[in-house]
Nucleic acid binder design. Structure first.
Lengths: 182, 182
DNA sequence: GTATCCATGTAACCAGTTACATGATTGC
DNA sequence: GCAATCATGTAACTGGTTACATGGATAC
């Protein structure tokens, strides 16, 4: 079986929350799910076309004074059903590749400073991520308009995931820097 | 800039530790770096050919009684240099896609049991991984022949990474199951 | 006699990235 | 005047996956 196009479901997911153009979808992704899912224009636009051809989304031209009309996509009932069918399926876990670990594994002939530099970089990155997640969590929790939104606990859980992950990575970086210096 | 072929460096890395056939390389990967790096035959064989054409590895036919000769690849000085040059470069972090989180984010209309099922699956998976890592660590530490191997601390660190990660995921799964049930 | 391991590959496919291309509007 | 943002796409490439194909040796 060919690998399923996950972008398809990501776009359906976004459109299930709010209609919008390809550009809007990209913005939405960047501001909400970017820490665990990325999409780029070169993929969004062709997949939107495919989705429309399949009848999973519909396109309407929205007039904009002064600007060329914008293509606004909305999810159809068929699209909602297709999304639902995918959501209830068990998660397929795809193998991940962690370049830092690959380098580390083969780095026994490298100068120690170079290895420590990489680990320090990683620590900094995750420190900064941790702050980002904390801010995002605070913002979400403070948003009155979302107080009773049934999606809120799930959205918060994706941020919590990031926090747990970043904290674990911080600790690992520190431990490893200690371990290899001995 | 086109994306660099990381498989190339993975293969050079493996061959920098021990010579072997494509088959041997795959086995090595599966038993040592599989938890953060995967390779498959369909990629290994053509890349080995490329590496040979570039003069980064050399091939010798090893006679095997009863069996067809085996192609044994060894890293060349040029290959070692190429690997080194890549190893000292900073790590490029590539975006990862976490399907569980994508589903979670859009799952507010799903039955709660279905979501909990997914989280329970994930918890089980990471529990089992944690055990695997612990065993791997124990084995590595008990191996007398590796006692003074300069690679050991780095290899252990990749396992420690897995442990930190799995522990964090366990906690997150439990917390999230609690949070969404309220 | 059957399953697993050893061993090497090819073909087809597709997902995703980078670079290229265009052009209007808004804010500084 | 310039940068950033809005807005939509195409072309070229390549990395990686799955499925297909083959066949001997060994262990149970």
């Amino acid at each position: 079986m060919a690998k399923v196009n996950k972008t398809k479901y990501a776009l359906l997911g976004v459109l299930s929350l709010t209609s919008g153009s390809g550009y809007d979808i990209k913005k939405f992704c960047d501001s909400t799910i970017a820490h665990f899912w990325n999409e780029n224009y070169a993929h969004i636009y062709p997949v939107l076309k495919d989705l429309e051809a399949e009848g999973l989304v519909s396109k309407t031209a929205e007039q904009n004074e002064g600007r060329p009309p914008k293509s606004v996509y909305s999810i159809t009932d068929k699209g909602r059903e297709e999304l639902h069918q995918w959501l209830i399926l068990p998660v397929e876990d795809s193998p991940h590749r962690i370049e830092l670990l690959l380098k580390l594994f083969f780095s026994s002939d490298l100068p120690l400073e170079n290895i420590i530099e990489k680990l320090t970089e990683a620590r900094k990155k995750h420190e900064s991520l941790l702050e980002d997640y904390q801010k995002a969590e605070d913002l979400l929790k403070a948003d009155e308009s979302l107080k009773d939104n049934k999606g809120l606990p799930l959205w918060l859980s994706t941020i919590s995931f990031g926090k747990y992950h970043a904290e674990a990575m911080l600790k690992w970086c520190e431990e490893t820097i200690q371990a290899i210096q001995k």
